[in-house]
């Protein structure tokens, strides 16, 4: 099933569940990892990913197709992540122990965590980035998106995104080489 067929089915009110399932099959893995890179924890990522598709279900019939569904889903996912991280930040400021909520500790808690492996070091480095840079890095480096698409998702100019990505890479490099 193509995205056009999925969209048509939603607008016509037919085969909606099958269409949603097809949409999830197309995008769930990439979206999941984008979310996971942003919020780190699997359960939080799962909640956000489910929310993204439930919101898609509720609103696809009205989708006007100004951007592709893929871009639209990424935009919802990114904004859900930003909202989640804001709430987490607020929660951390009133928590007795900041340590238990520390995002780096969430990574270290993974049963496969190995601080000597470059993949894990990179994940720790990414978590040092400000939220927006983290999103830019995730979309550009891991999802290999063109800046024009990232600009649509994050509503930032391509020039600013390029600068943001290069700042992010530089910070990652500094983190990795200082270790």
């Amino acid at each position: 099933m193509t995205e056009e067929e999925i969209l048509k089915n939603f607008k016509d009110g037919v085969n909606q569940e099958r269409s949603l399932s097809a949409l999830m099959d197309m995008h769930k893995q990439k979206l999941y990892w984008h979310i996971r890179r942003m919020v780190v924890d699997h359960e939080d990522s799962n909640d956000i990913l489910q929310t993204v598709f439930i919101k898609a279900w509720k609103n696809l019939a009205k989708f006007r197709g100004e951007s592709g569904i893929y871009t639209w889903l990424y935009r919802i996912a990114s904004n859900e992540c930003f909202t989640f991280l804001k709430k987490e930040k607020k929660r951390r400021t009133i928590s007795i122990s900041d340590e238990e909520n520390d995002i780096g500790n969430k990574l270290r808690a993974d049963r496969h965590f190995n601080p000597k492996e470059i993949e894990w070091k990179l994940q720790l480095a990414i978590q040092q980035l400000p939220e927006k840079q983290k999103a830019v890095f995730s979309l550009r480096y891991y999802d290999e998106m063109p800046y024009s698409k990232i600009a649509e998702i994050l509503e930032t100019s391509e020039g600013a995104l390029k600068a943001s990505y290069h700042h992010a890479v530089k910070k990652v490099q500094e983190f990795l080489t200082s270790d």
Partner: peptide, 30 residues
């Protein structure tokens, strides 16, 4: 830099994901 994500996820996570979402949307208003 490597592109492989090292974090673990439950082995059947993506296989059971659709079912979990569909169970929720069935009860949600359109």
């Amino acid at each position: 830099l490597p592109k492989k994500m090292p974090q673990s996820i439950p082995s059947d996570y993506f296989d059971t994901f659709n079912k979990k979402v569909l169970a929720q949307v069935e009860t949600a208003p359109e």
